[in-house]
Structures are given as structure tokens and as C-alpha cells.
Amino acid sequence: MNETLTAIVLGIVEGLTEFVPVSSTGHLILASELFGYDAAEWAMFNVVIQLGAILAVVYQYWGTFWNAGMGVLRLESEGLRFARNIIVAFIPSAILGLAFKDYIDIMLGSPSIVAWALILGGIAILGIEKVANPKGEETVADLPLRQVIGVGFAQCLAMVPGVSRSGATIMGALAMGVNRKTAAEFSFFLAVPTMIGASTLELWQKGGDLMAGTARVGWGEIAIGFVVSFVVALVVIRAFVAYVSRHGFAPFAWYRIVVGAAAVAWLALR
């Protein structure tokens, strides 16, 4: 595929998978194997277009973010609790992500890790769905620090490609008794600082060629991927919360297991 078509396809993959528990990073890694493009040349692209999906969260929940921001400025308890919960949950992945970035980069080059993580993550989702016992209809601002810290450490599992950041945070919240809707929304909100931080770090450390305009995959492809991922993610966010509130996460677990098993078989036969 040429660069423009690749950018569109990857933007669709990112938008479809960023906020559902199937691993957007894992799918992007497997896509590089399936379509045969140079994953190293598109590594920066894959990180930066996540901001398009993040913008979809900000757009969809603009009222929530605005009210929380105003609440912080006015020192209102609900706004302060919302901000506290997002910051506290973000801290573990920020610290461990910086500490183990070199090891994470090595794992990102292994499609076999992705395949097995998809399978094991699917099995974990099925298990958690069976034992989860949501206890209320609280909002993100209502969550106690015990649950918030637990979700923050659960997110760190997603440093293994194929685990899924959204899957780890949502399942971590469910395991601690948070209802499905709030668990999904907490995962969305937590994605904002997490992905902004990851994209900023990637640009700072490896964005020299991109900034100089000498990278093969440049700003044009990134702009296309950004817009596509924003539009697709916006549709997915709106549908996802409504769906899981009624039907749960088992269909995503089975999808992970099937895709992971197919990837294991395909990689073994190549």
C-alpha cells in the first residue's frame, strides 16, 4: 500500500480499537506484519495519531472536563475529586513507563508477544466478568482512592503490547466493584493524560527527523491518520458505553482469543 492508504487504514484501526478492550497497539503491530509495511518507519505515526482518538474523548465529554476544570478553580469538592482521581491513577504508569521504556520498546517489536497477550487477556476478561460484583452507580469523582490506585496500577499491565490499556483499566475497575459505565468512562478520561504523556515523550526522544521534515512518514500522513482516528473513535466511544452497559465485555474477550489464536498460527506458519 502507498503511504496515504496506509495512513487511512491505520487511522481506522486506531480509532476502532483505542477505547475497546482489544489493544490498539497490538492491532497496529499485527497490521504491520499483515500488510508488510516497515513498522519502524511508522512507529512515530502510530503514537501521535493516538492523540486523534484522545481528542474524540475530549469532544464527547467536553461538558465533564469543563465542569471539572471550573470546579477545581472554584475549589469545589466534586471537581477536585475528579482531578485528584485522574492524576493519582495516572502516576503509576508515568513512573513505570519512564523507568522501563527501553524494555517496552523491545516488546513493541514482537508480534508474538501481542498474539499471546490477546489470548491471555481475553481469558482474563471472561474470568473477571464472571466474578465482578458492581456495587453502585457512582461517578468517576465518587471513586475512593483505594479503587483509583488499583486502576492506576492495572493500567501498567498495558505496557505489555496486546494487553490493552482500556482493557486493563476497565477490568481493574470492575474487579474492584465499579459499575461498567463508570469503569469505561474512567478508562476514557485516564487515557487523556496517559496518551498525551506517551506521545510527548516519543516526539521528544525520537521526533528529530519528523520535526526536520526528513522522515519518510511525515506530517501529511500523520494529519490523515489523526483525522481518521478522531472520527472513528468518536463513533466507537458513543456506541461502546451503551453496548457494554447492557451486554458486558464477553464479546470483546472472545474476539481477542480468536484473533490472538489466528495470529499465533499465522506467525508459526510464516
Rank of each mutant, 00 (worst) to 15 (best):
M107Y: 08
M107W: 12
L108V: 06
P111I: 10
P111Y: 08
P111T: 11
P111A: 10
S112T: 15
I113K: 03
I113V: 15
V114Q: 00
V114I: 12
V114K: 02
V114R: 00
V114D: 00
A115S: 12
A115H: 05
W116L: 12
W116H: 08
A117S: 15
A117H: 05
L118D: 05
L120N: 03
L120Q: 05
G121I: 08
G122Q: 10
I123W: 06
A124Y: 13
A124I: 14
I125M: 12
E129G: 10
E129Y: 10
E129R: 10
K130D: 12
V131K: 13
V131Q: 09
A132F: 03
N133I: 11
N133Y: 10
K135Y: 00
G136P: 01
E137Q: 14
E138G: 15
T139M: 11
T139L: 11
T139N: 13
V140Q: 03
V140N: 05
A141F: 06
L143C: 08
L143I: 09
L143R: 04
L143A: 07
L145P: 05
L145H: 04
R146N: 10
R146I: 12
R146C: 00
Q147R: 14
V148A: 01
I149Q: 07
I149N: 08
G150D: 09
G152H: 04
A154C: 15
A154S: 15
Q155K: 06
Q155P: 07
Q155D: 09
Q155W: 08
Q155A: 02
C156M: 13
L157D: 02
A158T: 09
M159L: 15
M159I: 14
M159P: 05
V160N: 03
V160T: 13
V160G: 04
P161L: 04
P161E: 06
G162I: 04
G162W: 02
V163L: 02
V163W: 01
S164R: 00
S164D: 08
R165Y: 05
S166D: 08
S166C: 11
G167N: 06
A168F: 04
T169I: 11
T169K: 06
I170R: 02
M171L: 14
M171W: 06
M171C: 13
G172D: 08
G172L: 09
A173H: 07
A173G: 14
L174R: 13
A175P: 08
M176Q: 15
G177A: 11
G177P: 04
G177E: 11
G177I: 11
V178I: 14
N179I: 03
N179E: 11
N179G: 12
K181F: 00
A183Y: 01
E185P: 00
E185Q: 15
E185T: 11
F186K: 01
F186N: 02
F186D: 04
F186C: 05
L190M: 12
A191Q: 05
P193F: 00
P193L: 02
P193K: 01
M195Q: 05
A198K: 01
A198F: 01
A198D: 04
A198Q: 01
A198R: 00
A198G: 02
T200C: 08
E202C: 00
E202W: 00
L203D: 02
W204Y: 14
Q205E: 14
K206Y: 12
K206R: 14
G207R: 04
G207S: 09
G207K: 07
